[in-house]
């Protein structure tokens, strides 16, 4: 997953729900230095009884915001959604030569 264009990641999930798996795996895909390099990661743990769906809010460097409901997705789909915009930003960066 391309994570260098992410500035802000907010994840909310109930760890006791089996549908929280993509949310947790998404967090484990963030590289070890990301937080030190300025990415903000916020996780909110819902109580065990809550039935709220797991959500992921991502902000990119160009200001685009992406909101995903993770309870019906699988982790490859989540990665695909996030990478779609990241690839565009990567191409733009490559063309401007920075």
């Amino acid at each position: 997953m391309i994570t260098r264009f992410l500035t802000d990641v907010r994840v909310k999930f109930n760890p006791f729900s089996p549908r929280a798996k993509p949310a947790r795996l998404f967090l484990s895909l963030i590289p070890p230095n990301a937080r030190a390099d300025g990415m903000k990661v916020e996780t909110k743990m819902l109580p065990r009884t809550s039935t709220e769906p797991a959500t992921l809010d991502v902000k990119f460097k160009d200001g685009k915001e992406l909101k995903l409901e993770l309870d019906k997705m699988r982790i490859p789909e989540v990665m695909e959604e996030v990478d779609r915009h990241s690839r565009m930003l990567a191409r733009k960066e490559e063309l401007t030569g920075n």
């Binding site: 760890p15 089996p18 798996k21 947790r24 484990s28």
Partner: peptide, 8 residues
């Protein structure tokens, strides 16, 4: 505990 046991 089953749902908790996934991921690292």
């Amino acid at each position: 505990l089953e749902p908790l046991l996934s991921g690292p």
